[in-house]
């Protein structure tokens, strides 16, 4: 007790937490306002809104899994090189020699879990009618988050560079070849010509843009790596910020009027 008091009265502690422990009402309010992480929340919420049987906690768990993926992902980047020469072997050594090889499992299963929890979150939001005014826009933000999450998963799937990876990506990206107008086997792409020269060929269509080549190769690996580790996570982080902001501004977690 004495030690606890000593720590709590020290200048260091007080410089970090600028108020007494959140034991009374006033300080429970203050703690939410002075801490940058906690202030994602409002100070008070509707009791029914935070009941587990209402939200299923799925939005929160999705967010937490995103954080887990970020941390484990950054750590994995220390071990992994996105080149044909190294990619597979780096994963192999994560499995067989690296002490912290379990990071890969955490990252992979966390990603799978995140896909499930984001669907369940959407399911819950739908079934409680929480997309109705005034939350229409935030639902839209959510849909974009869903798409980005799936793309994150998809781009990550290629990185181990094993048979499972390249063929799953091949099957998936073959669809791009059939994009109307923009894929070289897509309806209408033949019409895009200038003076008899076709604009959309297997070397200039949507699939080529995605893969950086005509097949899933090293350029694809680099593209997917950059998307997976930099571009998509940044976009998701940004949109999550918007999403949370709007949850608050739209009146907190929904409830009957």
């Amino acid at each position: 007790m004495a030690i606890g008091d000593f720590i709590r009265n020290s200048q260091v502690w007080k410089s970090i937490f600028r108020h007494p422990a959140p034991r009374d009402r006033r300080n429970r309010v203050v703690v939410m306002l002075t801490n940058v992480f906690l202030h994602l929340h409002p100070v008070s919420v509707r009791k029914s809104g935070i009941a587990l049987s209402y939200t299923w906690c799925m939005g929160g768990i999705t967010f937490f899994l995103f954080l887990v993926e970020t941390v484990t992902g950054v750590l994995l980047m220390f071990y992994y090189r996105p080149t044909l020469e190294h990619a597979y072997n780096d994963i192999l050594s994560l499995r067989d020699v690296t002490t912290l090889g379990v990071l890969r499992e955490l990252h992979r299963w966390g990603a799978h879990a995140m896909v499930i929890t984001i669907w369940l979150h959407m399911y819950r939001v739908f079934l409680t009618g929480s997309y109705k005014p005034p939350r229409e826009f935030n639902w839209g933000v959510g849909v974009i988050l869903l798409v980005l999450t799936l793309l994150l998963s998809f781009t990550g799937y290629l990185l181990p560079w094993d048979q499972l990876a390249i063929w799953a990506i091949t099957v998936g990206s073959n669809m791009a070849r059939a994009t109307p107008l923009l894929g070289y086997e897509g309806p209408g792409s033949k019409f895009l010509q200038i003076g008899g020269v076709e604009l959309i060929t297997s070397g200039s269509d949507a699939r080529f843009l995605l893969l950086g080549g005509r097949i899933v190769g090293e350029t694809t690996l680099l593209r997917f790596y950059v998307l997976h580790c930099v571009a998509l996570p940044l976009a998701v982080a940004l949109l999550i910020a918007v999403h949370f902001w709007r949850v608050r501004k739209d009146g907190g977690i929904s409830g009957p009027l």
Binding site: M32, H41, V45, R46, S48, I50
Partner: peptide, 18 residues
Amino acid sequence: LEKLDDEKVLVWPDLVYT
């Protein structure tokens, strides 16, 4: 049912602990 728990509670501790 949701209406029955309509009152506001503080996020600390109710939500933060959950």
